[in-house]
Design a protein around this nucleic acid. Sequence first.
DNA 1: ATCGACTTAATCATCCGATTAATAGAATCA
DNA 2: TGATTCTATTAATCGGATGATTAAGTCGAT
Lengths: 243, 243
Amino acid sequence: MIKQLHSDSELLDYIVNNGFVPGARLPSLNDLSAELGVSIGKLREQLEAARVLGLVAARPRRGIECNSYSFTPAARASLMFGLATNERLFREFSELRNGIESAFWRPAVLALTDEDKQDLKRYVSLAWHKLQQSRIQIPHQEHRAFHMTVFRRLDNLFATGLLETYWDAYEAVELNLYADYGYLTEVWGYHEGIAEAIERNEVDEARALHEEHLLLLRTRDVPRSSARQASFAEENSMVRSQA
Amino acid sequence: MIKQLHSDSELLDYIVNNGFVPGARLPSLNDLSAELGVSIGKLREQLEAARVLGLVAARPRRGIECNSYSFTPAARASLMFGLATNERLFREFSELRNGIESAFWRPAVLALTDEDKQDLKRYVSLAWHKLQQSRIQIPHQEHRAFHMTVFRRLDNLFATGLLETYWDAYEAVELNLYADYGYLTEVWGYHEGIAEAIERNEVDEARALHEEHLLLLRTRDVPRSSARQASFAEENSMVRSQA
DNA sequence: ATCGACTTAATCATCCGATTAATAGAATCA
DNA sequence: TGATTCTATTAATCGGATGATTAAGTCGAT
């Protein structure tokens, strides 16, 4: 099996071949340079790449530390750059997020604990509270927490990592998709129904509500996206034009 | 909107702020260093990171060229390292791939052209040919091509990028999931049915077959995965144990 | 005039050395 | 004992030197 997943990175090869576990600290760059026969400059290039991927963390005097594996940093780094050059990509990533939530809904909900279900209801009431104040606030934090709680028990680093990335990106682009009051109450009405259905262990009922509520979001037009690209109207999101 | 997607990378900031399009070439590192007031060494670290993410390509004398955006390189780089340290992750990524294929099946198939549908049938017959030879060959290339053709028209860089990444990873780990003859014929029986249903525009029939065929793969045990971790038997894949 | 081989120069790739900044841990002192 | 200072280690950044690669220009032969 051994398999050399040829990574053209002496640093990463060193990490995998010497079985470094999360939390373990690598030798200093000086020692690594001597041991691997690679200059420090080159090692630093690979170190920067590894750090962008979230694989290691480096601090002076503490050395280079291996992180526990996560898909999020790589996804976020790539997505953030993509969004900076083409904001339209946010819609595509939203589609991906919707697809992942739909596909993993069932096993995720089935694995929720009673405590998780109480958390869901708590987020709903917190959101209603924010929405019902005289000076209403957008319950964004609760929105993120609600969805991520649903998938809290999902044992899939990639699915959860991509969901996490979605919310990071949402906060970064600040499209304010959930801006107007009527829309927010509708969404949280769904959330409330979902939380209650989950509490009653009616998984399919919750699933149906979840699908409806995704559809609600899906049909919603992106409001004040940058008008940089004029070809917005004619695009038909899901499908690539035929060659 | 302007939004400084603070990237703590002078190089990437420079690219996005100056509107470099795919194919455009950046100034030389010397000039960039002078213009940005950043040393070449530091720029090279960021260049390596950008290259790992597949955002740029650098070649001597050609300079640094912006690539068209793709999610694949980042996903692949992260996944490959993850697999090198924990092969179990392949199953999780397979689950993700299954979920994406299920979620995007309908719009993808609906957008296929007649030519695409003929390609699907062609891959099926190529695969049967390989399987029916006296010295049978595993039609892996056809398997990949068949699935990627189904999603050829899907206009979602992230979904298609992750599917592409899956096949790259599959070839890298070489688990030989599709090894024995009986399994292969069963899979390609499904593929044949899918291709024909798609040709007859029976999208839901094709979808049902596709779901069945994914289930077939899902229930299949990973055969000769490294026995490094003995806790394989007791794991129940999809769900994280309760806190 | 066209084509191919050769030269040139621009640029990335790699390496080295030195300096700076940050910090963990030891030493010191109230 | 507890807070502070000191010191050594290490990453972070810089500047420069050299080699490798290759696009583009040059030259010559047919």
